[in-house]
């Protein structure tokens, strides 16, 4: 990586908006952390949604209540719990994850999973029983029926994933606690995301930088929502 910051005195922070590297590295960290968190969340949420949608078992309603509660879980509390888990005294203390992107991924995973599960569950529950029965009588195995269900609910599931991504990339509390909002002296973000950077820049009185970063975050979130709306229309039209 080119270090332009050689000319920048270590004591003063890079003076964005004239330092693109600082901004790019922050966007990079934000997308990396939220993107991976969503990949893991989806891998967990989809099977859970399918299981909840199509099987009856004791405690199902309780599990659904937990998932719904999880959607409104305060991110700072999640951050605190993850920080405890990865701290020296915590169960994952040996992995040395305090103030790392991995810990941020963990906390965003916890925050996004209930949202993705709940919205996916609504989508797969909306697939008509007749259609699932058709896949079964046409010779499909349980896996085939699950695949048909996912395919039928694809717009709703895509909406769930994007909504989860939106929640992850725009939250500030947990990533601030577990990531520490760290940028190195040369102006490259290590665990600084768009949200934590905005918070810092605003607090330091650099409102222009904060506004530019806020604009970028807003564009990303708007783009995601535009895709969600388009997918919704696609689902209705087809």
């Amino acid at each position: 990586m080119t270090v332009i910051a050689g000319a920048v005195p270590i004591v003063s922070l890079p003076a964005f908006p004239f330092e693109p590297q600082y901004v790019w590295s922050i966007i990079d960290v934000s997308l990396y952390v939220s993107g991976l968190a969503i990949v893991f969340s989806t891998a967990v949420s989809l099977p859970v949604a399918l299981l909840l949608g199509f099987t009856e078992f004791r405690g199902k309603q309780f599990l659904q209540a937990i998932i719904n509660t999880g959607m409104g879980f305060p991110s700072v509390v999640v951050g605190l719990l993850v920080l405890f888990a990865v701290s020296n005294q915590g169960p994952l203390g040996g992995l040395d994850l305090v103030f790392t992107r991995e810990a941020m991924i963990m906390s965003q995973f916890v925050l996004a999973t209930p949202a993705i599960t709940a919205i996916s569950l609504a989508a797969v529950s909306g697939v008509e029983e007749n259609v699932r029965d058709a896949a079964h009588v046409l010779g499909g195995t349980r896996v085939d029926v699950a695949l048909v269900t996912i395919k039928e609910a694809r717009y709703g599931i895509a909406t769930a994933i994007l909504a989860g991504f939106g929640r992850a990339i725009s939250e500030v509390g947990s990533v601030l606690i577990v990531g520490g909002n760290i940028a190195s002296a040369d102006g490259v973000s290590k665990t600084r995301t768009l949200t934590t950077a905005i918070q810092l820049e605003a607090r330091q009185g650099r409102y222009e930088t904060a506004m530019v970063l806020g604009g970028i975050l807003l564009v990303i979130v708007l783009l995601i929502n535009a895709v969600v709306v388009r997918l919704g229309e696609g689902g209705v039209m087809q």
Partner: peptide
């Protein structure tokens, strides 16, 4: 089970083309 075919009262087609729908039984085999 795969030697039995069934048609329901409602068509219950998949959200796909006619060809894909009719091909489904062959595909899962």
């Amino acid at each position: 089970r795969r030697r039995i075919g069934m048609v329901f009262q409602e068509a219950s087609l998949f959200d796909a083309t006619v060809g894909r729908n009719v091909e489904y039984g062959l595909k899962v085999r």
